[in-house]
Amino acid sequence: MQFHPAKCVSMAVTRSRTPLSRSYVLHGHTLESVRTAKYLGVTMSHDGTWDHHINNMANKANRVLGFLRRNLKISSTSIKEKAYKAFVRPLLEYASSVWDPYTQKSIVRLESVQRRAARFVLNRYHNKSSVSSMLLLLQLGWEPLEQRRRTQRLEVFCRIRDGLVECPVIRDKIVPAPPRGRRMHTEQFTRIKTRTLYRADSFLPRTIRDWNNLHKDEVEAVVATTGPV
């Protein structure tokens, strides 16, 4: 089998401001060091943040939305809505349980795409205020993307917990919490202690907090969606 060194790169993931400079050699070829790299459709960054991925997805979704606007000008509201849900929203939600942002800047960046889509679907361009955008979303019955990502994280968490997704590294850290009074529901899990805000808002610590804060009926709804073991 022929080896193609140009297709292989290396990327050191670290939060250090002064990372160590290292080079990696494979089959006698020194690999190019990069700051971002795409893996399974997700852009990973050297500093562990998801800003590049979010910006790339938002830009791509806006381009697709622009294409739909140019080609579906006289289509019905139903057709436009189906086109948005089929071609644009999946771009904004692919693997979102991994990169779900916690910074307001990134959250707004993604929500702005859906607000543009709402104006496209309802053909309402005369008023572009944020309040008007929210009213359009309510008229369409669309949840904010932030809420949809939260639901998706909880569903993935539930599947890992129940063994429906093989992820032993995460599942081993999902530990039932000791019984206490005055809880939202009985299926609580021990919160993961973190030293940094960055770590606190990563998938598992953040999702455990969200899970523990659910009401009993919300827990039952998530379990019903993911299915029993």
Rank of each mutant, 00 (worst) to 15 (best):
H27S: 09
P178Y: 00
A95R: 06
K60A: 10
G66A: 02
S10M: 08
T43F: 12
V88M: 00
N127A: 10
Y94C: 10
R195A: 01
E143F: 12
L135T: 08
Q2D: 14
L110E: 06
T77P: 05
L197S: 15
V42S: 05
F67C: 13
A86S: 10
G181A: 04
K216L: 15
L91H: 09
Q114T: 03
M1T: 13
L145S: 02
Q139C: 04
F67H: 11
R180E: 13
T14C: 09
R115W: 02
R199L: 10
S133I: 00
A58D: 07
A224T: 14
R161C: 04
P144T: 10
H52K: 15
L40V: 09
V98W: 04
T190F: 01
V223P: 07
R161W: 07
R150Y: 09
R69T: 08
L110Q: 10
R182P: 06
F67V: 07
L122A: 01
S33P: 01
N212W: 04
L65C: 00
L197Q: 14
Y24V: 01
Q104T: 15
I208M: 03
G28W: 00
K73V: 15
R109M: 15
T186W: 10
A118E: 07
S33L: 08
R69Y: 01
K73H: 08
V131G: 01
L135I: 08
V25W: 03
K38H: 03
D201C: 15
E166M: 12
V131A: 09
L197V: 14
C8F: 05
R89H: 06
E220Q: 14
V169G: 04
V108N: 15
